[in-house]
């Protein structure tokens, strides 16, 4: 799976009144991504390969084409990215990092192969199997503050806190960390506008808000959110063109269709924005011929925006798409299979 942008380009000008989701081109686009080894960009994006697989695979599942990538090859690739410490790197030979570890767990859960970790996973020193992955993650928690580092070098960010709770809950190993402390930390990141930042004192940002709300949701503490204030702030992310931005007075971008709309969903306020207009904006960012979705109309497509565009459409109830889970950004069916229907 590659993150090479292009070759497609989102439509830029006049569109027919009834623009449709170009399902087949998107499927082909995602399938073609790993065959672009003759492009320098393919090699320059290796540090995102595993997350790229998560984005592409999840998009395919939401498009109703779960078999469009080989399950066996997917599992082989994921396992080949695991390090001896139990964590996963972005590609074979890359250092372990929490973000790629989350993607690995999500992909394995999606293709119903978490048990492969127990069969063939690394990290014997940590007990092997799922436990080794769980321990790798648990060791990244800051026991004093409750937040998480992305890797052994110590960068802390509420994204990592969410990534940890997400992966650990899918592994059914949430008890390895101090969830209450993590919740306290999220609360300490809240701002007067109801939003959340990277760390205490940081400006509210839609991406971090998604991470913090989803973390609170996994911890069962969504009651701590100032729903009214946050809902207002989030609803003001929608700009005249229908798209959503990440912060006040910034440009709209398809990936915020996910960060903002999923956040609104988690607090029960998705109806506070115009779903029809947002749908139209996402569809305008497609390359309907060669497949793929871009950040804005007329820009280069890539698998990151393709995934978040399709996930956004699924949240908005676009016909024919599989339902997405707002907390995990994975197919609802998968989450119900792993965590049970009343997660």
């Amino acid at each position: 799976m590659s993150l090479v942008s292009g070759p497609g380009r989102a439509a830029s000008s006049a569109l027919p009144d009834e623009i449709q989701l170009a399902i087949e081109p998107h499927v082909k686009y995602i399938q073609s991504l790993d065959s672009r080894r003759n492009e320098l960009e393919y090699w320059l994006t290796e540090h995102l390969r595993l997350s790229g697989l998560y984005w592409g695979l999840t998009a395919l599942h939401l498009l109703g084409r779960p078999d469009a990538l080989s399950r066996d090859e997917t599992i082989e690739f994921i396992l080949s990215c695991q390090n001896e410490n139990g964590g996963f790197g972005a590609a074979p030979g890359h250092d372990a990092h929490l973000l790629s570890t989350l993607s690995a767990v999500q992909v394995l859960a999606t293709v119903d192969a978490l048990d492969e970790l127990d069969e063939r996973g690394k990290g014997d020193k940590e007990g092997g199997g799922k436990l080794a992955v769980g321990k790798y993650i648990a060791n990244l928690q800051n026991r004093e503050t409750g937040t998480f580092a992305g890797d052994e070098w110590g960068e802390e960010d509420t994204r990592f806190l969410y990534a940890s709770l997400n992966a650990l809950s899918l592994l059914l190993l949430l008890h390895l960390v101090n969830v209450n402390k993590a919740v306290d930390y999220v609360v300490s990141c809240a701002n007067f506008d109801g939003g959340y930042g990277v760390s205490p004192g940081a400006e509210s940002h839609s991406g971090q808000i998604f991470a913090c709300l989803a973390a609170l949701n996994i911890a069962g503490r969504i009651d701590l959110v100032n729903v009214d204030k946050l809902g207002r702030w989030l609803s003001e992310r929608q700009v005249d063109g229908g798209g959503l931005n990440g912060r006040p007075e910034k440009l709209e971008d398809v990936c915020y269709s996910w960060w903002v709309a999923s956040s609104l969903t988690m607090i029960g306020k998705l109806h506070w924005i115009d779903g029809g207009k947002l749908t139209e904006f996402i569809l305008k960012c497609q390359d309907t011929k060669q497949g793929g979705i871009a950040d804005r109309p007329g820009d280069m497509v890539d698998v990151f925006h393709t995934h978040f565009g399709i996930a956004g459409l699924s949240l908005l109830g676009y016909p024919g798409l599989e339902e997405v889970d707002a907390v995990y950004c994975m197919p609802k069916k998968v989450i119900e299979r792993v965590l049970g229907p009343n997660k």
Binding site: V4, C255, A294, D299, M300, D302
Partner: peptide, 13 residues
């Protein structure tokens, strides 16, 4: 990689 705000050239020769 995830490309933000990169316009595709009009000619894709």
């Amino acid at each position: 990689m995830a490309s933000h705000g990169i316009p595709r050239p009009a000619t894709t020769a």
